[in-house]
Computed example of a mutant assay.
Amino acid sequence: MSALTLEELHAALSLRDLADPAQGPHAIQLIVDSIRTTLGRAWPYTEIWTRRDHPVVLLADNYDNLGYAAGAVTREARYTRYASATEVLRSHTSAMVPPALRELATAEASDVLLICAGICYRRDSVDWQHTGTPHQLDLWRISRNVTLGEPELVEMIERLVETVLPGQTYRTVPAVHPYTIHGRQIDVLLDDEWIEIGECGVAAPHILRKAGLDESWTGLAMGPGLDRLLMLRKGIRDIRLLRSSDPRVAEQMLDLAPYRPVSTMPPVRRDLSVVVGATADVSPEVLGDKVRDALGPDADAAESLDVLGETTYDELPPAARQRLQLIPGQRNLLVRLVLRPVDRTLTDAEANQLRDKVYRALHEGPVLELIG
């Protein structure tokens, strides 16, 4: 387990949580408000508990108390940002649920809707709909007054989609989660492509029991992605726009009206030939996180990163091996980096400097091919 440095932790916690009204208004909060209003009207006798916990949470609440296995791959440092051996930057807002359930076990309430919204911290790919700091919403209705099961889950899904994306075509497909039974993934149709907006299910009884709630309690669990919902609602095709400082964009992040595109900056493409080890993880999530770390405050300049090709030592011609000083077991990756800040045009010199930062972060060979 490799923990974040104090500087890395401070940088992560300094990033604005767009779901938190105390940090300034944002349209993401309007999405949460609309869902709260809809479910409040549908369940008038259900208490609403809104939680806004600190993003550094107990490792146990992020994983163990939600049913994740001790050896689950998601616990690895390549996917989870550890603050210490026992604490992490929450990877999902579901981490707020176990302490809320424990509180419910000692309260007098008998029917509660938990609303847990906030920023999360993940290792993720670089593309138009992913970020390492997404905003998520957890909606858990827990009751001992009524039995909550699949019929109620179907109604909850319908209310969510009709509230946030009225008229949108959607579907559900089976999904497995450690904290639900009868799990489902919710997709909506966008330009002939199904886009996931969240996952849900009936709250797993063993999760409720672990929190101290007896067999009389049942529940529903739903976790939609707030960034994705807002982008689909407004017609935004670049997740970086949600944090844009360009006044022409930022003022549009205060309502749910359709997005009005501003002038598009030209993309800058740089193809990189990098050497990686035999066991190096070159998944989009890991590479994306390395790119964001390398670019630091300029991370939003990276629009996408794609591996175009992978060649083993044995497949490379001798001349290429010699040029790269490749050794047996290493691989050569051809990576395409697309740079396009949302609010300005990069000069060639700036693009080359950013390219070199990414190159240094990905390249493991002895020969450096820098252009900046």
Rank of each mutant, 00 (worst) to 15 (best):
L6C: 09
P267C: 11
V338M: 07
L354M: 15
Y79Q: 14
A42W: 06
D192R: 13
P224Q: 05
L113M: 14
I28R: 05
D348F: 11
D192F: 04
Y359F: 15
L339D: 09
L368K: 08
Q353N: 09
I207F: 07
D17F: 06
H130E: 08
T37S: 13
A27M: 11
T46K: 08
A175S: 15
I236P: 15
E199H: 13
A221M: 10
Y68Q: 05
V97E: 11
E47Q: 14
L137V: 00
E108F: 00
V112R: 08
D255L: 09
E87R: 14
D343V: 09
V342A: 12
R209Q: 12
R141I: 06
H135F: 06
L334Q: 09
T80C: 05
I371C: 12
D127R: 12
T169S: 10
N352C: 13
E364T: 04
A175Q: 15
R141V: 08
V291M: 02
E350Y: 04
L114K: 01
D124C: 10
A211P: 10
L368A: 10
V358T: 01
D246F: 03
A77D: 13
E8F: 01
V112N: 08
R248N: 06
D343K: 05
A301N: 03
V282M: 10
T46N: 09
Q29I: 01
A85K: 15
Q23C: 03
G309K: 04
A60K: 12
A69V: 02
P205T: 06
A83K: 05
L337T: 00
I186T: 05
L4F: 00
D124S: 00
L113D: 10
